[in-house]
Design a protein around this nucleic acid. Structure first.
Lengths: 370, 370
DNA sequence: CCCTTGCAGGAAACCGGTGTCAGATGATCG
DNA sequence: CGATCATCTGACACCGGTTTCCTGCAAGGG
């Protein structure tokens, strides 16, 4: 085995042609991919005419178009995305930017987006990031600029960052923010109506007859946390209940933080008979705390979550929670983005797009024990 | 507002140049992106020399290199990925192909991969698919061929599909299969040692003193299911326990299937005192069944899972489970793939890469009640 | 019948990089 | 001091598409 000597061995330059960034053999020569030139030759037209057919230009005679279309289908030709990207000055790539620990959420958005993107020939490039890093904005800037992304979708909580939105606007990169509040022009939003959703939870609890109701909210720096809190508090007030400050704990949407919050709430006297947890992770934290104290759900304590993540139905007892149509939101975000990129944003097509979660009643909610 | 009349208004052709696939204005002109030509002009060299510097060719005088490097850094120039892709005939894109309902698993792989890919200038394109669709293979073929992917990572269960691997090989597309068994050349594998892992579970149960031990396995069509079953059965046998057929139920790695399996196992007399669930979802199903029957975990029943997904620590009691270093597996897969693509697969660098999960003991396992 | 005019389609440049190969340069050697 | 050679560098073609600009042609008008 030729051991690498510490002295650099210089090979005569002529011996090896040029350094060369390694080129893979990839495509077997036998099945060489067709190019637009091949098609043009086969059809006896110039490549430009083939290009016109591909891009649905009206300036091609029907007969010619048919002939070329037939050849394209027969040969299975598809234009090279990178070559198109170069000429079009855009990439046919959509980015998904997130810093969200909720895996099912991200996956569902992702798959919802792809459902819409595939039909129109876009690919999805994922970009998890760290919103607390110093490199947060520069990193995303590089990502967007280098790849010439046609657009990006932002998930909460980075979707709430106004600096990020400003930067994208300045970069001229179309974006869609998935959000819980109208923080932007409606044409840039997919909005989940968290305020109304929280109100639905309040109504459910009121109907069950609960009086001492507590909430574990998300971090106040998150817009969704504020919306859910306010919507909940307002709706309770409208039904003659109150949400006293000592019955509100601020968590961070995480399991661990929630256990601490729930411990605090459940050691109060009198104890709340119901806790609205601002997401399912948080609800799981309440379960843990209740479990530790030997409290039975829902007999001793009603728990309600938010998201309807897979976790909700795995917990015992199963969790009553607000279901967000996450996959649909992903699809809608993608469709809206494609519409923007294609310049179809005329008229009503770009109205604000909102989704309204709805309550899934399972085992964790019931009337308070007398 | 000009209402669109039903009669098509034809604008004279000269008026509008050509139909044109819409071109976005994207980059603000003020901050026009630099090209290699700009850099060449600034440095008073040809673009080829700049290209050499970018690609670290040794055929550039140190002084020249320094000058160009300085200019590149000062201007913040980064080469256009699509242009490079066109010239290099490769895309600097890596694909992630999966058909896996386990969201945390996919997300962790994804993020692990990106950790490695970013450093070397690759982007990740995700491609969920449906392995039962007729279009399964053609769809992936189009994806890989059109995008000229430099390589793909396959997650279970599609990683187990031999036809898919064959197709990729024929396409000349480097791939890494994340798998539970040595089904391929080691250089194409990231292997999780499921057999040994299952043995560790057996040992844990034996040490606790369990005798009547059951298992809910995954679908027999999955390699990991077989590995876990065999590893478990063999290890039990080695410790003087048996795994009788009536104590083995075949689930499908899903919560719902597991509830049915657990119901069947738990209605047997005598009842098993421990159940090894082949993944955490399955373990959650056992919890549900036990909950329905009023069985206490771990007093009446020990439950052990596999994965250490977030669910494991959310369940009450928390779940003893085998932790797979999923993120590391993603990172390793990406590194291995990049090494292949860069042609660095000489010598030991391409040895089989395996990971060994380890047991995380939590609350769900304990000695059987006398 | 000639001249417009509008449609269809082609030639060549271009997008922003890389590969090829010959030429320039400077050091070494006989 | 000229020949030889290794080392750098640039001109030019090319990757696979699109855009710009121009031409040929048939139909319609004067």
């Amino acid at each position: 085995m030729p051991k690498k000597s510490s002295k650099v061995v210089r090979v005569p330059a002529r011996a090896r042609p040029e350094p060369r960034a390694r080129r893979p053999e990839h495509v077997a020569d036998s099945e060489r991919k067709h190019t637009i030139n091949d098609i043009a030759r086969l059809a006896n037209v110039s490549k430009k005419t083939v290009s016109r057919v591909i891009n649905e230009s009206p300036f091609v005679r029907e007969e010619t178009r048919a002939r070329i279309t037939e050849i394209i289908e027969r040969t299975g030709f598809t234009p090279d995305p990178q070559a198109r990207a170069l000429a079009f000055r855009r990439s046919f790539l959509i980015g998904l930017i997130y810093d969200n620990p909720n895996a099912p959420y991200v996956i569902n958005i992702q798959e919802g987006m792809l459902g819409a993107l595939r039909r129109v020939g876009y690919e999805l490039v994922v970009h998890p990031c760290d919103r607390h890093s110093e490199e947060f904005l520069p990193d995303i800037r590089r990502f967007v600029a280098r790849q010439k992304l046609d657009g990006v979708v932002l998930l909460p909580p980075v979707s709430e960052n106004p600096l990020l939105a400003d930067m994208l606007r300045q970069l001229g990169c179309p974006y869609i923010r998935v959000l819980a509040a109208a923080l932007d022009d409606p044409k840039n939003l997919i909005m989940s109506m968290d305020r109304e959703s929280a109100a639905e939870v309040a109504e459910h609890l009121a109907k069950l007859g609960h009086e001492r109701i507590a909430m574990i909210m998300g971090p106040r720096s998150f817009r969704s946390a504020i919306e859910r809190l306010e919507g909940f508090a307002d709706a309770l007030a409208a039904r003659g209940r109150s949400l006293p400050p000592e019955f509100v704990a601020e968590g961070s949407y995480t399991f661990e933080s929630s256990v601490a919050c729930a411990d605090a709430l459940l050691s109060r006297t009198p104890r709340p008979t119901a806790i609205f947890a601002a997401n399912d992770e948080t609800a799981a934290g309440v379960y843990r705390s209740a479990y530790g104290r030997g409290l039975k759900i829902p007999d001793d304590l009603t728990v309600i979550g938010f998201d309807d993540s897979p976790l909700a139905s795995r917990l015992c007892p199963s969790l009553t929670t607000m279901r967000q149509p996450i996959r649909d939101m992903g699809r809608m975000a993608a469709e809206k983005l494609v519409a923007k990129v294609s310049g179809l944003e005329s008229g009503a097509a770009i109205a604000a797009t909102t989704v309204l979660p709805h309550l899934i009643v399972r085992e964790s909610s019931g009337p308070p024990r007398q």
